[in-house]
Design a protein around this nucleic acid. Structure first.
Length: 224
DNA sequence: GCGACAG
DNA sequence: ATCTTGTCGC
């Protein structure tokens, strides 16, 4: 699978902010089409953050079984800057996506989507580049404030940043720390939360993220 | 100016 | 993200 939009990745911080602002205008919040397959992506670091290893898994949306998987490595060429996270991890993720034989109907990202200071987190960036439905499911917050959801699985509260509702804090299992869910591209917040609940029948994090994380660690160990 | 800050 | 021991619970 290849992106429908391409842009330089060898840029400085200021150029990245400018490009991000331009791409953010393309984000769409619409009801996604039929979803039969869901992909998950994750990245791990090797050699003291000199090398990135990315993993992409494709799950059957009904059974949550892995039907395809791919990994790829890429040299780090962008620093970790909160807010510009996607410029650091996407090159590796794109290399892994290129090895995927089919286009997923939805991609679950490990990080924020709209719940970002410029409303353009990793999930939005990936979604716009491939024109695919994407959502962000983050373990920790970047921006926004929210009330503590009730302790039962499925409970949620609005994630608000300034005047805007940028996402939802969702409890995926009874008593566990909730995750931050936000739209990436071509999906609605309600649909995004519905999918996260469908993908978390047993654990706090979605099966997509867990499978991708598991495989990326194994690949990292195999490298040495 | 000071603190916060996805992975 | 990654570095790490012990500990609580099913």
């Amino acid at each position: 699978m290849k992106p429908v939009i391409d842009h330089p990745w060898q840029l400085d911080i200021d150029a990245a902010w400018a490009l991000q602002r331009e791409l953010a205008a393309k984000v769409r919040c619409v009801e996604p089409g039929p979803i039969a397959t869901v992909a998950g992506v994750d990245v791990a670091y090797a050699k003291d953050e000199m090398v990135l290893v990315a993993s992409v898994v494709l799950l059957d949306a009904m059974t949550l079984e892995v039907v395809e998987a791919a990994e790829a490595e890429a040299a780090v060429q962008f620093p970790y800057v909160p807010g510009l996270f996607s410029f650091r991890e996407l090159p590796a993720i794109m290399a892994a996506l290129e090895k995927l034989s089919r286009r997923p109907d939805l991609v679950v990202c490990d990080g924020q989507g709209l719940a970002h200071p410029r409303r353009f987190g990793l999930a939005c960036h990936l979604g716009v580049l491939y024109d695919l439905p994407t959502l962000g499911c983050a373990k920790t917050r970047l921006v926004g404030e929210a009330a503590e959801p009730a302790s039962a699985r499925g409970s949620a509260s609005e994630l608000v940043d300034g005047e805007a509702v940028v996402g939802r804090v969702l409890r995926t299992q009874d008593g566990v720390k909730p995750v931050d869910v936000s739209i990436g591209h071509r999906i609605t917040l309600d649909a995004a939360c519905d999918w996260i609940l469908r993908l978390t029948p047993r654990y706090r994090l979605p099966e997509t993220t867990r499978q991708a994380d598991q495989r990326v660690r194994r690949r990292l160990a195999a490298l040495g």
